[in-house]
């Protein structure tokens, strides 16, 4: 007999069972209806914004690390300058960018002796930096004793200004700004000197060397993050 009875007929064979099962199904339908109303009407803004990440203000505490070097360079020769940055001497600091200032004067003291030609180039090496950044000035030349300014962007996107950045958590936002591998290593700078002499019918005396001063300035930063007020 039991094999002939279907599950549905067994479940609804008495009035009380029918009532309680109807109540159960009604409750489930009611819950779905209530949820649909809340989801599509009352909470619709929150629902639509559920995947929007909060915006964070990333701020940077800046500091500069400068070093100078000076050498007498012979005419027609190239000198290699170097500067080392390591994590031990700069704990918890990231390297933002590098500015190299190359300065010299015409020191011969001879009448009408023009400024020499100085060319400088930061050598591309293994250091982790934003070598392809468009704002980089990796080489420069001067023939009028004006200083040469070279610039290497080291930490991508860093310019020292506060950044607005989306992210689920402050930790997630900070991961972008806490990579202290950027900028660590030995920087190399080639500086070449070529002297000039005044071209005229009057005999003058030129020089065959010049003193070149190098100033390495590393702009370093420590990031911090707070949730933006309007996020």
């Amino acid at each position: 007999m039991s094999e002939e009875q279907s599950y549905l007929s067994f479940m609804t064979q008495d009035l009380d069972s029918k009532k309680v099962l109807s109540l159960m199904v009604s409750c489930m339908i009611l819950a779905i209806t209530y949820h649909a109303f809340i989801f599509w009407n009352v909470k619709v803004d929150d629902v639509m914004a559920r995947n929007e990440e909060p915006i964070w203000d990333v701020m940077f505490e800046l500091s500069e690390n400068s070093a100078t070097d000076s050498r007498l360079i012979q005419d027609g020769s190239t000198e290699l300058f170097s500067n080392q940055i390591d994590q031990e001497s700069h704990p918890n600091m990231m390297v933002g960018y590098l500015i190299v200032l190359i300065e010299y004067e015409e020191t011969s003291g001879n009448f009408n002796d023009p400024c020499d030609i100085v060319s400088a180039e930061i050598k591309h090496n293994e250091i982790m930096a934003d070598w392809k950044n468009e704002s980089n000035v990796l080489s420069g030349t001067s023939d009028d004793c004006s200083p040469i300014n070279l610039h290497l962007q080291i930490y991508p996107d860093f310019d020292g200004l506060t950044k607005n950045q989306p992210g689920s958590t402050p930790e997630e936002v900070m991961t972008k700004w806490e990579n202290d591998d950027f900028g660590m290593g030995e920087y190399l700078l080639d500086v070449e000197l070529n002297t000039q002499e005044f071209v005229s019918n009057i005999p003058t005396q030129g020089d065959d060397n010049e003193e070149v001063n190098i100033t390495w300035t590393f702009v370093m930063f420590t990031p911090s993050v707070v949730e933006a007020e309007n996020s």
């Binding site: 409750c27 489930m28 339908i29 009611l30 819950a31 779905i32 209530y34 949820h35 649909a36 989801f39």
Partner: peptide, 11 residues
Amino acid sequence: WQAFYAASVGL
């Protein structure tokens, strides 16, 4: 997903 969650809550 949530609609079926809601049905489960109703139950």
